[in-house]
């Protein structure tokens, strides 16, 4: 089944066209990566899929639900991690996970919290106030929040943004593990090696347009290059 279907998506802010006729599909159970330079339209596309923004034209559906007309249904099955996300700094990590779990599960929230605590891997610091966390700890907590409910679709905008190698590696493992439990992942990243490691399929966006799509292997074969970084560079330069 199609987890995400994006058709001729356009998003304008006044005269500025942020997304210009993008179409792609994400199959259920897949990890799909959107890559592209800054300002290419990746985050805007993810925000539309996450029901935060409305498209100027075009259609987006998540597991068959329209993101505009059926936003409430979409929100029940997705989980979104923004690139620059924060958390309530006067709550403890545990209280934060508990609150989010209650929103999704009501009385049966404990299972989510247990999974969240385990995914976050913060040990005893889970009971510290979030304001005392390092950037890496916060990002792990936020990712745990996004994944603990085992959503049908997790939308992760730059999940390892600004993190050191150790934290980034742990987060990539976490994403792989949760995907193994049946969660479809749609992510964006600047890190080509990360995308190559994680994603089954990749869409490359430049200037609001999808300029290439395929598996990492297909893209390397089609556009030439030892790795995705070379593919990306060749594509952006118009080779």
């Amino acid at each position: 089944m199609e987890a995400v279907k994006v058709e001729n998506l356009v998003k304008k802010y006044g005269n500025f066209v942020a997304v210009n006729g993008i179409s792609f599909r994400v199959e259920e159970g897949m990890i799909y990566g959107l890559i592209g330079p800054n300002g290419a339209g990746k985050s805007t596309t993810l925000r539309i899929i996450a029901t935060l923004l409305k498209p100027t034209s075009g259609r987006v559906s998540v597991f068959g639900y329209d993101v505009v007309g059926e936003a409430d249904k979409v929100r029940r099955i997705i989980s979104y991690l923004p690139e620059e996300a924060g958390a309530y700094k006067h709550l403890t990590g545990y209280e934060y996970l508990e609150l989010m779990a209650k929103i999704y599960a009501g009385d049966g929230y404990r299972e989510y919290v247990e999974r969240g605590v385990e995914l976050a891997g913060l040990g005893g610091r889970i009971y510290s106030k979030i304001g005392e966390y390092s950037k890496g700890m916060l990002r792990r907590l936020l990712l745990a929040r996004a994944l603990m409910t085992l959503p049908k679709l997790a939308i992760l905008d730059e999940p390892t943004s600004g993190m050191d190698v150790v934290y980034a590696t742990e987060i990539r493992r976490m994403i792989k593990r949760i995907n193994g439990e049946g969660v479809t992942i749609l992510l964006s990243s600047h890190n080509m090696l990360e995308v190559e490691y994680l994603c089954d399929e990749i869409g490359i966006i430049s200037n609001g347009r999808l300029i290439a799509e395929g598996s990492p292997q297909e893209l390397k074969e089609r556009y030439g290059g030892e790795n995705l970084e070379e593919v990306f560079t060749n594509l952006v330069r118009g080779v």
Binding site: R47, R75, Y80, P82, A85, A87, M100, I103, L142
Partner: peptide, 14 residues
């Protein structure tokens, strides 16, 4: 300011 609104708005809450 603390970048929590986007997450809040994507939660399944009316």
């Amino acid at each position: 300011e603390y970048k929590t609104l986007e997450t809040l708005l994507t939660l399944p809450i009316d």
